[in-house]
Design a protein around this nucleic acid. Structure first.
Lengths: 195, 195
DNA sequence: TTGTTTTTAATACAATTGTTCTAAAAAAGG
DNA sequence: CCTTTTTTAGAACAATTGTATTAAAAACAA
């Protein structure tokens, strides 16, 4: 029996409980029910409740990281950036579940030191992506002149997080297509007029 | 004894508990302790726990709404929009507490029907502000030509929510000054070149 | 088969939850 | 000063929480 696979199944059950009932209802009993296990049995895979929650949180960013690592980049920034952003934004049901769970953990991280430390790590990693994007645009002479790079990094990053939140909170107002068009429009506002 | 004032004091204690310990630790006992009351005594102002939480959530948006209503607008859009946005964004400690509490309730609203209904109301009200902003820019002929109005509404709204979240999650990376400059830069990206 | 380990199940325990109830203290009105 | 109402305090309730314990069941090795 694959120990690690079982841990992932339990963590996925945790995600579903969080989506259906909220993080505060993600008790060991509710998760065990959702996973089809007994409480004592689940204990063999996670020895404490917080260890399970931490694992479930990390699995979110792991999944996103793996998707990004699997992108087949073209080399052209203006096509690659949308590819990249598309794997971060909740552009389908699976990613929306992830994002919803992530937000729950983010809020919990505001009063949980361990979760906060990990959230900072992920945030730094994400921010470095936007730093590289702006660096890339400048290096290839695509960026509009007189851009304040540090400001544009935060503006782009904030826009993406805002779109992600709105897609979770008002999915009917923020379909995948609108997210993509908004990203495209924003890119355009960062780049010098072409030709 | 002012009944309503006492309710606000209890709700403010609720905010502090949420900030210090998280929404899931905002139990009647913890809130009563923070407010300096007994459990039975608090019961005279809020008959149920959820009524108290709902009140504490509504108080956040009420405070924001009151601040906006008190703005002394100049009539010039390009000075008024920053004034307006400044009352929404967490540009000082007081507003950061509000925003932190608000996010906690927003996440809870994902698994609580009553909170979800109210959150939708607030969201619609907020979105209508950005609709008016874009309408105003177009009416005064300030907006750049060829703007997709509906897209720009969502882009601006998403940017503001993204800035707000970042100010809560990484206050040292998103000081008030950077938020204001980012808003200014975004406005510039919406407007036609001046003169 | 027999023996060993892994996995599952179920119960028990103390702590915390929202809520209810009872009564004392304080305030107000006559 | 007495009566009535409002406010406060604290104990008690059943339900739920994370965790520990115990033992049965299953899987596996020899």
């Amino acid at each position: 029996m694959d120990h690690e696979k079982q841990r992932e199944k339990v963590a996925e059950a945790t995600w579903r409980v969080i989506q259906k009932m909220g993080l505060d209802q993600a008790s060991v009993r509710n998760i065990a029910d959702e996973a089809g296990l007994s409480v004592g049995s689940m204990r063999h895979y996670f020895s404490t409740h917080s260890e399970l929650l931490f694992y479930a949180m990390k699995m979110v960013s792991d999944r996103v990281g793996k998707r990004i690592a699997n992108i087949d980049f073209s080399g052209d920034l203006l096509t690659d950036i949308p590819l990249l952003v598309d794997e971060i934004l909740p552009t389908d049901e699976e990613k929306r579940l992830e994002m919803e769970v992530w937000f729950a953990f983010v809020v919990k991280s505001l009063s949980d030191k361990d979760l906060a430390r990990y959230r900072l790590e992920v945030d730094d990693g994400l921010r470095s992506i936007f730093i590289e994007i702006m660096d890339g645009l400048a290096a290839k002479n695509l960026a509009a002149p007189d851009l304040d790079a540090e400001l544009e990094i935060e503006r782009f990053y904030a826009l993406i997080d805002g779109l992600a939140i709105h897609a979770v909170l008002r999915p009917e107002k923020m379909p995948a297509d609108l997210m993509r068009r908004t990203v495209y429009r924003h890119l355009q506002s960062l780049c010098r007029p072409s030709e």
